[in-house]
Every structure is written in structure tokens, then in C-alpha cells.
């Protein structure tokens, strides 16, 4: 067995494939989080109490081993690190790709999927920043009719208040479409990167899973906001 020295391994981590593995790993963290989040959001359909209890439960989970909000903080740290890693890898690869072809073709035929992923990903990043400001950090209500602490301090109320505003809903629809595109390729891409698609069958299955997951996520996430916008939830 030819031995592989540890310095070789260290450099290999910085290779384009090493970066992609980082990206796939963090991407999977996101996917899991997003699924969980979607499940939580769907609780809104069961009404204010179910939703708020769920939000509270997230914070008391694991007590007393974890302090109040402990799990949430762990999740937040993991998410933040993942975000940094994911974006770092994405932008490094983007710039390496730019360097790899400095003279562009005069005639281009294929619409580049890389553009979806990179600009779409960037859009998702901007969206998440806004989303956090809105719901977690600043807790802003964009609904002029519904202001004040009893709205902003009640997650359910904030939710309902926000999505009664059509343009905010539109931003979310756009973000979710972007996310769907990102994931329809991302899920396949991650399995490919992790080397799980080394046969024609596995390759096809992972492509299908990507599309299915993307569909589930758009639909699942959009049910509560649309229900609110169209007045099914008040």
C-alpha cells in the first residue's frame, strides 16, 4: 500500500474537490435545517398556540442539561459556521473558475447552471440576512396596521402580520424559487461530490431526489404565507 503522508492530505483539503466536500457537507446541514424549519412553520396551520408552543419548545429542548435556548444556540453556531464555510468555498471556487478561463468564448450555447447556483446562492444569502433581521434579530413588522410589542414579541402574530403584506410574500416566493433551484441541483450535486453516485442508477436516483426535495420545500414553505395572504389564517 502506497502511503499517503499527512501533509499531502492537508494540501488535498484545499483542492477544488476538498472545497466541494466542505460545500456538500454544509449544504446538507442547511437542507436538514430547512426541512426542520419547514416542519415548524407548518405548525402555524394548527393555530397560534401550537406554533408558539413549538417555538418555545425549541428553546426549552434539552433542559436542564442545556440552558434555556441552548439547543437553538448550538444550531445557530453550526448554521453560522456552515454558512461561512459554504460561502467561502463557493466564492473561492467561483474565482478559481474565473481564472481557469480568462478568455471567454465569443459564441456560447449552453445556459450555465453555475450561474443559478452562484447568483441564486448569493440571493439566498441576502434573503437570509433580511429574514433574520425581520424575524429574529430586530423583529420588524412590515405591516403598517399591525405594530407594537404584542405583535413583534409574539412569533405567531409577527408571522401573520408580515405575510398579510403582498410584497413581502412576493420576496419570500422569490427566495423559495431560488432555493428550489439551488436544491434541485444542490442535492444531486452534494451526492455527486460525496461520491455517492458512482453508478448510473444512483446517479439517476439522486437527480430525482433533488427535484423532489426542491418541490417539497417550495410547497411546504409557501403554504403558511399563502394561507395568510389569502386570509385562511388570520
Amino acid at each position: 500500500m502506497a502511503t499517503v503522508t499527512s501533509s499531502r492530505v492537508a494540501t488535498a483539503r484545499r483542492t477544488t474537490i476538498g472545497l466541494k466536500i466542505l460545500m456538500a457537507g454544509t449544504g446538507i446541514v442547511f437542507v436538514l435545517y430547512v426541512l426542520l424549519h419547514m416542519y415548524g412553520n407548518l405548525k402555524a396551520l394548527q393555530g397560534e398556540e401550537a406554533f408558539n408552543t413549538y417555538a418555545e419548545h425549541l428553546r426549552t429542548f434539552g433542559e436542564p442539561i442545556l440552558p434555556y435556548g441552548g439547543l437553538l444556540w448550538i444550531v445557530r453556531v453550526v448554521l453560522l459556521l456552515s454558512l461561512v464555510g459554504h460561502a467561502y468555498a463557493a466564492y473561492t471556487l467561483w474565482s478559481r473558475a474565473g481564472n481557469a478561463r480568462r478568455t471567454k468564448y465569443a459564441a456560447v450555447k449552453t445556459a450555465a447552471r453555475t450561474a443559478w447556483m452562484r447568483w441564486g446562492g448569493t440571493f439566498i444569502l441576502l434573503f437570509v440576512v433580511w429574514h433574520l433581521l425581520e424575524f429574529t434579530i430586530l423583529k420588524i413588522s412590515v405591516n403598517p396596521d399591525k405594530q407594537g410589542p404584542n405583535i413583534t414579541q409574539n412569533p405567531y402574530e409577527l408571522l401573520v402580520a408580515s405575510f398579510q403584506v403582498w410584497w413581502l410574500t412576493l420576496i419570500y416566493v422569490a427566495a423559495l424559487v431560488a432555493l428550489a433551484f439551488h436544491l434541485s441541483h444542490g442535492v444531486f450535486s452534494a451526492s455527486q461530490t460525496l461520491g455517492l453516485t458512482g453508478s448510473a442508477g444512483a446517479y439517476r436516483r439522486s437527480k430525482m431526489t433533488g427535484h423532489a426535495l426542491a418541490a417539497v420545500i417550495v410547497v411546504g414553505f409557501l403554504i403558511p404565507p399563502l394561507a395568510i395572504l389569502f386570509g385562511l389564517i388570520k
Partner: peptide
């Protein structure tokens, strides 16, 4: 994919 897997394994 096979290449990626081989790299991951060797990492």
C-alpha cells in the same frame, strides 16, 4: 463521483 469518493476516502 468515483473520483470524489476516492479523494474523500484518501483524505
Amino acid at each position: 463521483s468515483t473520483l470524489n469518493k476516492d479523494l474523500r476516502t484518501s483524505l
